[in-house]
Write a protein that binds this DNA or RNA. Structure first.
Length: 881
RNA sequence: GCGAAAGUGGCGGAACUGGUAGACGCGCUAGACUUAGGAUCUAGUGCCGUAAGGCGUGGGGGUUCGAGUCCCCCCUUUCGCACCA
């Protein structure tokens, strides 16, 4: 063992040792308990960033811990390798996206290996390889056979920056998920869809089973995104048109007697018909035309240097003032025969429910606002109970019933019924009389997965004039991407590649065309964790028997940004895979950890814009000595010039230090601010561990006997050792609080130094034993966090095997127990003294010891004890007057 | 606007079931060893105060023998959702 800790020399050597011994390569083994630890796979952008390092340091610590506890641990890594940046690079640098991507993967793999993560690299997968994406195609065809994918002409979200359509999840809030400054616009396109709505109920209901294992935040976001609402559809007659009805959707059929108008979406087919009927001069017609114009105006961004930008006067759709116009027609309320004006208004969405609503201004804020603006009939209260105003007087605001205990009034034969009962009875009434039906609606839509891009999985279908849409026969999979696509072309490169497009129909043999869309890249990440369990299978995406052993994932770790995107798709894909008969469970992930961001303080100089924290000296810019704006904490990003390169940190401090700091500086789910001084602290700790082991190494080498006669200090050290094992075990295993686990190991190290200072050169055999026990435990406890130094120290302690495969230390509860306790004494809840007593003291003896204490006696001088509260072994509180 | 989470030293953060607030680390102060040290070791470090003592977990109230922790009101920050009938 050398005197100085030199991570740059140790780390590559230990990494080579693990690789040679295939320490982290695993096989399914039903005789052993398994643990599947999964971290979100990276997009191969070219460089690992600190966010990755944090994500993978957490997963790696947990994997090591479980492995040392005896689990058969599957810990894989791969590459989410299809997507836009590769195509952009291809266009810009005239490169090939496959070469660009593979080169990036190769350099990022080197970076991950330098960090020493315990991946089973034999299972490395990249989604852009035909060996992987052929199974996307296979799944797609199976799903088509089950009726789970279909084609339709639909209004889809379109991003002008990506030049492709997007799924609803990728266009949340009206902006592209990749370009938060690019509003999506709507286009009509023929597209492939996955029938998510078939699974909407399951996706929602199964969230209950995830509670406890998944963060509440994620569960809530998914619930809101799926957005189930139960209600009824009701047909309103149209005056003078006996053959037509208007179907509305409502969740509050109990308020139907309060309806004062019917409002249709401007996109509703009736509105279009009536607008045409009425002719160009009518108010309705011009409203509809204006509505279309307005929509086009708001949603088509300007372009600057070919990049779309938001116009300064852009108004998000949700903030447009409510506007409407009377259509000149009247509807008939089927419950009471009442005549209601039919309006059309910009706030009614054609895409949700039936595109038509009944307006109940008395009980709906939005309806109230709209009715008030246009002087529609005076609202009437029809749900009451906790309503305190006069039910006959005009309302000044909508009254939203607080709970289901309210009663319906002013509603004919239904009056007097509690709301839930009224809803059931009135829905049934509508059903029996043929003018309505119970209906559940969801916000979640079918997943549009066609992309008009070339760097993705080709959709394995052929369009034949005679046979229609024909799947590519499975023995001809994969449908491979051509290598010679022209990415510089303005259109879709796949559609322009004659060799790819022109094909004989598999059914009739006539000339036909391949589908030229590719799949959304979220398909790749929807099932990659299944592929890891059997990464080289060329008969199926995976062997069901092997998946039955490894799956589901025990712990998944990744960023919160995937709460409704990736994490809904994986749940959906698992349910589909189950229904295809490959597996028997419906949820892929038992426990989910959403780790916080890595942030860094940003500084801004008036002349030099964003500057790195290291370029700030005493609050002034290094280049011009002007004072900088106070640092804000922001997510690391290149544009803010506040990134930290992991490679550089590894070069300076070593991988172990970087990993340790990532785990020590904050609990995993919170944001973590990178700090160079903090990293130095972690480095200092590892140096301290190294030095104390070095100092005792020779002395404890030949110490094998357990000695009975321990000094007070040696007993204290042993106690600390066993307490630390206990704490680290629960901190990792039960709480996933790596930061406090590290703190505990630091305390043990401090205790070793204190012991060393007392014993100096005069160590007895029992002292050596206590130190050996402490050092061996410390090295093992360190292994999940800083495996390289742990290995090196383990070897120096005379061990041949790798420490990362050694058994996790056990603690002795007896030895961990304190033999003396310091008990705080309170008088009326205020701390006045501390007494030191034997650990096994009885409550009565403790009380006596407290009363005998001089300080306590002084405080009690002229007071009377009214009550004594003894919390066994923790505290005594005397209530006096 | 609606919903959720969080506010603890100069800083990152501990305090797990209502029971010694500030573990551990950074920073800072003093000392030791050193030719020197941005190395290392030792001691100190919530605030006010020479001290005794007092005050302290965003602010205000409450429950309790006892509140960072539970309840109510307010403030601030962050994050989701924002016409879903």
């Amino acid at each position: 063992m050398q005197e100085k800790y030199f991570p740059q020399e140790i780390e590559p050597r230990q990494q080579a040792r693990w690789a040679e011994a295939k320490t982290f390569e695993v096989e399914a083994d039903t005789s052993r308990p398994k643990f599947y630890c999964l971290e979100m796979l990276p997009y191969p952008s070219g460089r690992i960033h600190m966010g990755h390092v944090r994500n993978y340091s957490i997963g790696d610590a947990l994997s090591h811990f479980k492995r040392m506890q005896g689990f058969n641990v599957l810990h894989p890594m791969g590459w989410d390798a299809f997507g836009m940046p590769a195509e952009n690079a291809a266009i810009k640098n005239n490169a090939r996206p496959d070469e660009w991507t593979i080169a990036n993967i190769d350099s990022m793999r080197v970076q991950l290996k330098q960090l020493g993560f315990s991946y089973d690299w034999s299972r490395d997968i990249a989604s852009c390889t035909p060996e992987y994406y052929r199974w996307n195609q296979w799944f797609f065809i199976q799903m088509w056979r089950q009726g789970l994918v279909y084609r339709k002409n639909a209004t889809v979200n379109w991003c002008d920056a990506c030049n492709t359509s997007l799924a609803n999840e990728q266009a949340e809030g009206g902006f592209c998920w990749r370009h938060d400054d690019v509003p999506v616009r709507q286009r009509q396109l023929e597209q492939w869809f996955v029938r998510v709505t078939n699974y909407a109920n399951q996706l929602l209901d199964d969230l209950d089973t995830l509670e406890g294992g998944w963060p509440d935040r994620v569960i809530t976001m998914q619930r809101n995104w799926i957005g189930r609402s139960k209600g009824a559809e009701v047909d309103f007659g149209i005056e003078g048109q006996a053959d037509k009805t208007i179907r509305i959707f409502t969740t509050r059929i109990d308020t139907i007697y309060g309806a004062t108008s019917i409002v249709l979406s401007p996109d509703h087919p009736y509105v279009e018909d009536w607008a045409t009927e009425d002719g160009v001069t009518s108010a309705l017609t011009s409203f509809v035309i204006d509505f279309d114009l307005q929509r086009k105006y708001i949603q088509v961004p300007d372009k600057v240097e070919n990049r779309p930008v938001v116009p300064a006067n852009y108004v998000p759709e949700t903030q447009i003032p409510k506007e409407g116009v009377f259509t000149g027609r009247y509807a008939i309320n089927p419950f009471n025969g009442e005549k209601l004006p039919i309006w059309t208004a910009n706030f009614v969405l054609m895409g949700y429910g039936t595109g038509a609503i009944m307006a109940v201004p008395a009980h709906d804020e939005r309806d109230f606002e709209f009715s008030n603006k246009y002087g529609l009939p005076i609202p009437r209260v029809i749900v009451a109970n906790d309503f305190t105003g006069d039910v006959n007087a005009p309302l000044t605001e909508a009254f939203t019933p607080k709970d289901d205990k309210c009663t319906v009034i002013n509603s004919g034969e239904w009056s007097g019924k509690p709301v839930p009962e009224a809803i059931a009875a009135m829905t049934a009434h509508a059903e029996t009389n043929g003018f309505g039906t119970a209906q559940t609606n969801f916000k979640i839509r079918d997943w549009g997965i066609s992309r008009q891009r070339a760097w993705g999985t080709p959709i394995p279908f052929i369009h034949c004039a005679t046979c229609g849409i024909v799947p590519v026969p499975e023995d001809q999979l994969p449908v491979a991407l051509p290598k010679d696509l022209d990415f510089a072309s303005k259109g879709a490169p796949l559609a322009e590649h004659a060799g790819f497009v022109n094909v004989a129909c598999p059914t009739c043999g006539q000339a036909a065309r391949r589908d030229t869309d590719t799949m959304d890249t979220f398909v790749d990440s929807s099932w990659y964790y299944f592929r890891y369990v059997d990464a080289h299978n060329d008969k199926l995406p995976f062997d069901p028997a092997i998946a039955a052993y490894w799956m589901p994932v025990d712990q998944y770790i990744g960023g919160i940004e995937h709460a409704v995107l990736h994490l809904i798709y994986t749940r959906l894909w698992t349910k589909i895979t189950r229904d295809l008969g490959l597996i028997t469970f419906g949820e892929p992930v038992k426990k989910l950890l959403t780790q916080g961001m890595v942030t860094l303080a940003s500084y801004r100089c008036a002349t030099h814009d964003w500057i790195y924290p290291t370029e700030v000296i005493d609050g002034k810019c290094k280049f011009c000595s002007q004072p900088v704006t106070t640092g804000r904490i922001e997510k690391m990003s290149k544009s803010k010039k506040n990134t930290v390169d992991p490679d550089e940190m590894i070069r300076i401090y070593g991988a172990d230090t970087v990993r340790l700091f990532m785990l020590f500086a904050a609990p995993p789910e919170k944001d973590l601010e990178w700090s160079e001084a903090g990293a130095e602290g972690s480095s200092r700790f590892l140096n301290r561990v190294w030095r104390i082991v070095y100092k005792w190494n020779d002395r404890i080498a030949d110490c094998g006997l357990q000695i009975a006669d321990f000094s007070t200090e040696a007993r204290a050290l042993r106690r600390k050792t066993h307490q630390t094992i206990k704490r680290v075990t629960t901190d990792i295993g039960e709480r996933m609080n790596f930061n406090t686990a590290v703190a505990a190991m630091m305390e043990l190290t401090n205790e070793l130094y204190a012991f060393d200072a007392v014993v100096k050169d005069a160590a007895t055999d029992s002292d050596k034993f206590a130190v050996k026990e402490a050092v061996e435990a410390l090295v093992k406890l360190l292994a999940p966090f800083t495996p390289h130094i742990a290995e090196e120290l383990w070897t120096s302690l005379g061990r041949d095997e790798v420490v990362v495969a050694a058994a996790w230390p056990a603690y002795d509860a007896e030895l961990a127990k304190a033999d003396e306790l310091e008990i705080p004494v309170q008088i009326n809840g205020k701390m006045v003294a501390k007494v030191i007593v034997a650990a096994e003291i009885s409550d009565d003896d403790l009380k006596a010891a407290v009363l005998a204490d001089a300080k306590v006696q002084a405080k009690l001088a002229d007071k009377q004890i009214v009550k004594t509260i003894v919390v066994p072994k923790r505290l005594v509180n005397l209530v006096v007057k």
